[in-house]
C-alpha cells in the first residue's frame, strides 16, 4: 500500500509549499512558496530531507492527519505550540523543533497556533506532489500546484515517497523562533522620490498595525496616511518579495510570497530577506516598526543569518541525548551528516 497521510480535518488554510516557483516571473507567474522559509527549511532538516522538499504550511488552525505508512518522521516548526500525537490509546505532546517517528494509525494534530500565523509540518521523504512549472507550491489564485491548486480538504490523501522511512534517531533543534520584536528592517526605495521627506520619516517612525487584511499575497498595514508627491501611479515595474507599495489610500502593503510579479504603485521600501520569516509569523493586530539599512548591510545580514542557521542545524542533537549519561560522542558531524544535504545550493 502506498504510504500517505489522510486528512481528517483540513485546518483553516493548510497548503502544500516548497521554496517557491522560480524562473517564470517574466510570464507573470508569482513565486508562491513558504511564507516563513526559515522555519520551512528547519522542518525539512529535522526530518532528514533536502531543504526544498514539499511540506505543509499551516495557517492559524492546524489539520488532523492519520498516518498510513509503516513509519514516518514528522517535525513542526514556526511555532512553539507542541504537536499532538494519539497512538496506541495514548496522547502525547511533542515539542516543536523536534522530530518524532510515528507508525501506521497514529493521529497527528497540529494545534491552533497561539504564537504565530504560520507553522510548517515536514514529513520524512517529503510530500509526493507532482511539480507544476518546477515547484510543488500551491498558488490558489491561479488554481495550480499542491493538491489541485487549493488548500487541503477533509478526505484528501497526501501521498508520501517510497523512501519515507526515517534513518537514525529523532533529532531536536534549539528552538530558533524569533518573536516578532516589532522591528522589521528595510532597504528604502526604489520609488522613494514619490514620497515627501516628511512621509518617509512617518514611514520609519510609526508603529504600524497589521490589519486583518493579511494573507499569502500581502499584509495591509494601518497607520497615518503617507502622502505621495507625484501621484500614486507608476509605469508598472518589477516587485521583490517584501516590497512595500503605497497605493492611493496612503496605507502601505507589504507584498509576500503570492504577490504579483509587477505592479503600478510606488514602492517606498523593501523588507530584507532576513526579516521576511518574521512577517510569515506575524499575526493581525501585532505592531511593527521599520528600520532602514543599506543594501550592502542587508546582504551581510542575510549571509550571517544563513551561516547561523547552518550552524544550528549542524548542532541538532538526538532527542534522547539529555537522558543519556554521555552522548557527547554522538553529537559530532557524523551523526547529523545528511541532515542538510544540499544546503549550499
Amino acid at each position: 500500500m502506498m504510504a500517505s497521510l489522510i486528512v481528517h480535518q483540513p485546518g483553516l488554510y493548510t497548503t502544500v509549499q516548497d521554496a517557491g516557483r522560480y524562473g517564470h516571473q517574466r510570464f507573470g507567474v508569482p513565486l508562491a512558496g513558504a511564507l516563513d522559509l526559515e522555519s520551512f527549511w528547519l522542518a525539512n532538516a529535522l526530518v532528514g530531507n533536502p531543504w526544498n522538499d514539499a511540506a505543509l504550511e499551516v495557517r492559524m488552525l492546524g489539520p488532523v492527519l492519520e498516518v498510513c505508512a509503516d513509519a514516518v518522521r514528522l517535525a513542526l516548526t514556526g511555532t512553539k505550540c507542541p504537536l499532538k500525537i494519539a497512538r496506541a490509546g495514548r496522547e502525547e505532546r511533542v515539542p516543536a523543533y523536534q522530530g518524532i517517528t510515528v507508525e501506521r494509525g497514529a493521529m497527528v494534530t497540529v494545534p491552533p497556533l497561539t504564537d504565530s500565523a504560520n507553522a510548517y509540518l515536514a514529513v520524512s521523504g517529503g510530500l509526493a506532489v507532482p511539480p507544476i512549472l518546477g515547484s510543488a507550491s500551491t498558488l490558489t489564485r491561479a488554481g495550480f500546484g499542491g493538491i489541485d491548486g487549493r488548500a487541503l480538504a477533509s478526505g484528501d490523501v497526501l501521498h508520501l515517497h517510497d523512501d519515507c522511512e526515517p534513518d537514525g534517531p529523532d533529532l531536536q533543534l534549539r528552538d530558533d523562533v524569533l518573536a516578532l520584536n516589532g522591528r522589521i528592517r528595510v532597504v528604502l526605495g526604489p520609488q522613494l522620490d514619490y514620497f515627501s521627506s516628511a512621509s518617509i520619516d512617518t514611514f520609519l517612525q510609526t508603529d504600524w498595525e497589521i490589519s486583518n487584511d493579511a494573507d499569502r499575497m500581502g499584509i495591509r498595514l494601518v497607520g497615518p496616511q503617507l502622502e505621495h508627491t507625484r501621484g500614486f501611479n507608476i509605469a508598472s515595474d518589477g516587485i521583490a518579495t517584501g516590497s512595500i507599495q503605497v497605493p492611493g489610500s496612503g496605507q502601505p502593503i507589504i507584498l509576500l510570497a503570492d504577490r504579483q510579479t509587477t505592479g503600478g504603485y510606488p514602492k517606498i521600501a523593501t523588507v530584507i530577506s532576513t526579516d521576511l520569516p518574521l512577517l510569515g509569523r506575524a499575526r493581525p493586530g501585532e505592531r511593527l516598526r521599520f528600520e532602514s539599512v543599506s543594501a550592502d548591510r542587508a546582504i551581510e545580514l542575510r549571509r550571517e543569518r544563513w551561516a547561523r542557521l547552518r550552524h544550528n542545524v549542524a548542532r541538532a542533537t538526538p532527542v534522547l541525548a539529555e537522558r543519556a549519561i554521555n552522548m557527547d560522542a554522538l553529537q559530532g558531524e557524523n551523526l547529523v551528516s545528511g541532515v542538510w544535504s544540499s544546503g549550499d545550493d
Binding site: 517564470h24 517574466r26 515595474d237 521583490a240 546582504i299
Partner: peptide
C-alpha cells in the same frame, strides 16, 4: 531570473553568492 517591464529590468539574485 529577470523580469522585463515597460521601462526597466528587474534582476532577482541569490544574496548568498551575489551582491548589487
Amino acid at each position: 531570473e529577470s523580469v522585463p517591464t515597460f521601462r526597466s529590468l528587474t534582476i532577482h539574485f541569490n544574496p548568498i553568492t551575489l551582491d548589487h
